[in-house]
């Protein structure tokens, strides 16, 4: 069941990336003409957030009773 769901998910990811090549874009920023640019933003954004939370967590994460 889980494998099947994962397969469907991968197919959907592939489809959304392919749809990004259709000529329907906004034209506000230079990157808007790049096909599937929002997919790229999704990947970069997730990794960026992951790096930031790992960095902040390295010094800001404390035990539950820290303030007691």
């Amino acid at each position: 069941m889980e494998t099947r769901l994962k397969t469907i998910f991968w197919v959907l990811v592939g489809l959304t990336v392919v749809i990004g090549f259709l000529p329907i874009h906004h034209h506000f920023f230079p990157w808007d003409d790049v096909p599937s640019v929002d997919a790229v933003f999704g990947i970069i954004g997730t990794f960026l957030l992951l790096i930031i939370i790992k960095f902040i967590g390295s010094f800001a994460r404390k035990k539950e009773d820290f303030y007691d």
Binding site: F9, V17, G20, I24, H26, D38
Partner: peptide
């Protein structure tokens, strides 16, 4: 607007993919 709908779906699908992997 199609560009907005597709953009958001792409954003979510790909960030969801990275979430699943990590």
């Amino acid at each position: 607007a199609p560009a907005h709908v597709i953009g958001i779906i792409q954003l979510f699908m790909l960030s969801g993919l990275v979430f699943m992997l990590f």
